[in-house]
Simulated assay, not measured.
Amino acid sequence: MNWKEIFPDFEPPLLLEMEHFAVINNFAEDDVLIDIGEPVVFVPLLLEGYVKIIREDKNDGEHLLYYLEKGAVCALSISCCFDHKKSEIKAIAETSGRVAKIPLGKMDEWMARFSGFRNFVLQSYNRRLQEMLVAIDSLAFLNLEERIVKYLRDKKQINNSRFVETTHQEMAADLNTSRVVVSRLLKKMEADKKIKINRKSIEFLD
Rank of each mutant, 00 (worst) to 15 (best):
V40M: 05
K194N: 06
K106W: 03
D192N: 07
F117M: 03
F21I: 02
L152M: 12
E203K: 07
D192G: 02
A172V: 04
K70M: 15
E109K: 05
Q157I: 14
D108Q: 09
I197F: 06
W110P: 01
K86Q: 12
M132I: 11
V51H: 01
N26Y: 07
N176F: 07
E146Y: 09
A100C: 09
R179P: 05
F27G: 07
V134K: 10
S138K: 14
A75T: 03
V134T: 14
T95E: 14
N176D: 05
E165R: 07
I102T: 02
R55L: 11
D30G: 04
S79P: 03
A191K: 10
A135W: 03
L16T: 04
S178P: 00
L144M: 15
L14S: 00
C80A: 15
R179C: 03
R118Y: 06
Q157V: 13
I195F: 03
L68R: 06
E146A: 15
M171D: 02
I92D: 04
A91K: 05
V51F: 04
K156D: 09
L144I: 14
I89D: 06
D206T: 07
K156F: 07
L45H: 05
K194L: 08
R98M: 14
G37I: 15
S79W: 04
V180H: 07
V121A: 04
M107N: 11
G61M: 06
D60E: 14
S124D: 00
V99E: 00
Y66K: 01
I136K: 11
E69V: 06
F141S: 12
E109C: 02
G71V: 09
E131V: 02
M18Q: 00
K90E: 13
Y67T: 12
I78Q: 08
D206S: 11
F120K: 02
K155T: 11
K188M: 09
D60K: 15
K90M: 15
F120P: 00
I89Y: 13
K106A: 07
N25I: 07
N59P: 03
E88L: 11
E190I: 05
I78M: 09
P39R: 04
K86D: 13
N143H: 10
I53P: 01
D57I: 06
Y125K: 01
Q130P: 00
K187P: 05
V164M: 09
Y66C: 07
E146H: 13
L68G: 06
N159D: 12
E29Y: 06
K4S: 14
E5P: 02
K156T: 10
M107L: 13
I102V: 10
A93L: 14
E165M: 08
Q123W: 00
V121W: 00
K106V: 02
V43I: 11
R118T: 05
D57M: 06
G61P: 06
I202F: 01
A112F: 08
M111R: 08
D60N: 14
I78C: 12
L15M: 02
